[in-house]
Nucleic acid binder design. Structure first.
Lengths: 318, 318
DNA sequence: ATGAAAGCGCTAACAA
DNA sequence: TTGTTAGCGCTTTCAT
């Protein structure tokens, strides 16, 4: 009836009735039922966001970017967390799609077959984020972790380091970290080098783990002249440990992390890193979802962002 | 029809038909429409989460706790961010309630009048989190920031510090930080003391701001013997700065933060802090929402968690 | 400018 | 055990 028109500012309604309706609505504390509305109109202002974790620091930042961009589009994010489990991801996705959201933003390109099929048949914009190394279902926004790793390797080799160690997480399901390491090893191989040693961890405070792993790897292989960390937090832990223990950084020992978390600006030295463009990825993904109302037809765009090496104070200049 | 029964594992269905339906569903890539389901059944498996920010580190942790607890309840979190704006909060809440969620978890006890009214009339469990200093609408899970501040003041005074400075954020809408400071000043007053100086910031990298503010306040008031920071990140920045500049911590200068972020385990010294029980608050809140299916009648419980001072290495022992 | 009526895709109650 | 039917509270279309 008319009420519906007033509350949606649609169609022709006289100013008089309009005010009357608004007043009544307020008096009754009326809150429209979007469920009914969505069912009738076949439109839902929700966007499904599927991410592996909330404790990784990286994902809240992406989320934040998405949330910012969605701010005044009338779209609401619905978040699902997969804990890096493909099966959980499939379940979360199923759950989300059953709400017929206006779009889906999902981390990574690797999904179960069923999940992939769901995404393909969703009939709404799908944006796979964080990673561009592989084939996407629809749109893709991210960086090439493989090339990121490769570039870092090249920069390290160019700076004259030769005995290089890697420190990272033990997470087979973290495809981006895996690709970064693969790219890194490729980069070393191109210079005729290989990893001299490596060390992995899981769980715990990253800063602390960074310390422990750094100590362990340097004890085991004292002639290392560079440590590449799979993220800035463990890198920061390593940096603190090295400084305390009198290592000549970056003279005799270089260090680099990954992500470019500005959380860490303010350390005694600035850790070399690469910005993973997290917030930007979130924004762009949200933009695509918000901007392509009912499409699904047009087919996806692939946006590759370029992470830049920030040398900081832990890679020596030649 | 029968299909509905199969997919919800309800009622009596013969194994034969059951399998046939399941098979057909899979073949067609059928995904049920929860919108229609929700409308018909008046049940919605969504929980609205309203928080001020995602960049604060604290809230992702709470979210994480909620998400964990909701994991196998079949409930999905829907997140809304308010940027510490009461009006935005009201808008976000309105939006959420129009989806008739099974519950609402909202940060803080301070809301606009309209928002409060909505919460009261929501007809589902409402849990206000983080703070217990004030009157809640329904259930409340949190800590007393006022007492947290007071306790910290008492501990500092007991350790013999007398010239105490405060460093915090300039956020009138962050009621919890405000209450903490008020409690802190009360605690000092009870010992016949007052803040000797204070310094506020907004935006930027917290670690870096901590450094800058620490330098500034110590330049301005060199005889300070204690610095109380409103969060651990700026506290950590301050700690690093003090160590680099040769301050005798905790002998001549004590430091303390707030939150107990384990992210920072691994600093050269362990910063004194108080655990804000963030994850636990999330879990408990989710538990309440999940455990009180259709109630709304029973009336809320108030769960006050007790933050404990972790002295670390930056408050001297007498 | 307003009202009336027909669904949206399910669930719940009842009938068979 | 299965099928039938009447809504859930809106939006949309068509009539007034």
């Amino acid at each position: 009836m008319t009420v519906s028109r007033v509350l949606r500012n649609r169609g022709d309604v006289s100013e008089a009735t309009r005010e009357k309706v608004l007043e009544a609505a307020k008096a009754l504390g009326y809150v429209p039922n979007k469920i009914a509305g969505a069912l009738a109109s076949q439109r839902v202002n929700l966007v499904g966001i599927v991410i592996p974790s909330l404790s990784n620091l990286v994902f809240p930042e992406v989320l934040s970017g998405i949330s910012e961009e969605l701010e005044d589009t009338g779209l609401q994010p619905v978040v699902g967390v997969t804990n890096y489990s493909p099966d959980k991801e499939e379940a979360v996705l199923y759950e989300m799609l059953s709400w017929r959201p206006s779009g889906v933003i999902i981390a990574g390109l690797e999904h179960t077959e069923a999940a992939r099929a769901m995404l393909e048949n969703a009939g709404v914009p799908v944006v796979e984020i964080m990673d561009v190394d592989g084939a996407g279902v629809d749109s893709v926004v991210g960086i090439s972790h493989r090339r990121a790793g490769r570039h870092m390797a090249e920069a390290i080799v160019a700076a004259g380091y030769r005995r290089i160690g890697f420190l990272g997480t033990k997470m087979p399901e973290d495809h981006r970290a895996r690709k970064r390491l693969e790219g890194f090893e490729e980069g070393l191989a191109a210079a005729g080098l290989a990893l001299a040693d490596s060390e992995f961890y899981q769980g715990g405070s990253a800063l602390l783990k960074g310390r422990e792993m750094t100590e362990a790897i340097l004890k085991r292989t004292p002639d290392l002249d560079f440590l590449y960390y799979s993220n800035d937090m463990i890198g920061a832990g390593g940096l603190l440990w090295c400084l305390e223990n009198g290592y000549d950084v970056p003279g005799k020992l270089g260090l680099a992390g990954f992500n470019g978390v500005d959380l860490l600006d303010g350390l005694p030295r600035k850790l070399a890193t690469m910005d993973a463009c997290r917030r930007e990825i979130g924004r762009k993904a949200a933009e695509i979802v918000a901007g392509r109302p009912h499409s699904g037809a047009i087919g996806g765009e692939v946006i590759e962002l370029e992470p830049v090496i920030e040398f900081g104070d832990t890679i020596r200049k030649l």
